[in-house]
């Protein structure tokens, strides 16, 4: 793509042209220099959208819930961008992206933009370019961006790094209390949703989750790319202002029940973040984390360009033959690349 074509596409996308938005998402998904040029052009126009992450195990009803949330936001006259991630097959590199099946009612609304993404080898529940796709939609003026992760288990927690508000979706009978107190995905929840609440066991699930929250008596926050526990229930003082106990809500997305309450809880979380200064702090952490990630990736790319392919292969052979250990091998390669520069 030449520069003037890219400038045109960016200008069109900023004006809301859907074809241009779709093209730009493909470009950032592809990665490389073109992606970087696009992202640096749109970055000044980002930061306005409320990004809401939706994660949870496969089959808990994430897509259906996303569709219902989108409808609720449309009633408030807000435009909605949706990025839905499904896994890439590790064997063929292909993927079946099926989240649109549950979103068919939204397909022709001109104020909703839905994009399906394959993980393309990324772990952590998102694709490498999911945040970049959300940036494109943010710059194009979508007010709310719903990001649906792959069906996640207990450690796909990347979504908490990119979303302002993270919903963790559970369903009744999805495990005993020990599941609820294990570390991992529940700890990143800003709001916990027990979906399919018409099934038996919904109240028990809510009770188990509430009990887990009582044990925690605090909440975790990302800080410098790590999860930190923030003190919760303290008598008086500033600490209380900084505590957010994730509400546990029951929904039945298929019937549209409990969605109003969920939308209100999401709004309350955004307001809490703004008032407590957490919003600012999270933006700060997000920027720092993103910068580190880009540095790591770019440095690696530059390094690999300088090391001849055969040298890399030979080193691998040495390591396999136990003639060299991988740690000194890496140091030697870096030293060699520096000499070449």
């Amino acid at each position: 793509m030449d520069i003037s074509r890219m400038d045109d596409l960016v200008a069109q996308a900023l004006a809301g042209d859907r074809r241009a938005i779709a093209r730009l998402i493909s470009t950032v998904e592809q990665g490389g220099a073109e992606a970087r040029q696009v992202l640096s052009r749109i970055y000044p126009h980002t930061g306005r959208a409320h990004i809401v992450g939706i994660t949870g195990a496969p089959g808990t009803g994430k897509s259906t819930l996303v569709a219902e949330l989108a409808k609720a936001y449309r009633k408030q006259n807000l435009s909605v961008g949706i990025v839905a991630v499904d896994p890439t097959s590790p064997f063929s590199g292909g993927a079946i992206l099926g989240d649109r099946i549950r979103m068919r009612d939204l397909a022709t609304d001109p104020n909703i933009f839905i994009r399906s993404m394959a993980t393309r080898g990324s772990l952590g529940g998102l694709a490498r370019a999911t945040a970049d796709a959300a940036h494109v939609l943010d710059a194009a003026g979508y007010a709310v961006i719903l990001v649906e992760t792959v069906g996640a288990g207990q450690s796909e927690v990347d979504i908490a790094r990119m979303a302002h508000t993270t919903l963790v979706i559970q369903m009744p009978a999805s495990g005993d209390e020990i599941q609820a107190i294990k570390a991992g995905i529940l700890e990143i929840a800003d709001i916990i949703v027990v979906n399919k609440a018409d099934l038996p066991g919904a109240d028990q699930a809510v009770a188990a989750l509430e009990a887990m929250l009582d044990l925690n008596s605090g909440h975790t926050e990302w800080h410098h790319g790590r999860l930190f526990q923030i003190e919760g229930v303290l008598a008086g003082g500033d600490q209380v202002k900084h505590s957010w106990r994730p509400p546990v809500l029951k929904t039945c997305a298929l019937r549209g029940e409990g969605i109003e309450e969920l939308v209100q809880a999401i709004a309350a979380h955004l307001q809490y973040q703004r008032e407590s200064g957490l919003h600012q702090q999270r933006e700060h952490d997000r920027a720092a984390e993103q910068l580190q990630r880009i540095l790591r990736y770019t440095l690696l790319e530059q390094l690999l360009e300088r090391i001849p392919k055969h040298a890399l292969q030979e080193t691998v052979e040495h390591i396999v033959a136990r003639e060299q250990d991988p740690y000194s091998a890496a140091e030697a390669l870096i030293a060699q690349a520096r000499l070449l520069s």
Binding site: G94, L97, R100, I114, R115
Partner: peptide, 23 residues
Amino acid sequence: MEVIYTGLRQTPEMIAQAALQED
């Protein structure tokens, strides 16, 4: 390949919109 599967009973409008958004 990456296959976007949209399911049953799609109108031509839905299909064209999906083709556009999914590029």
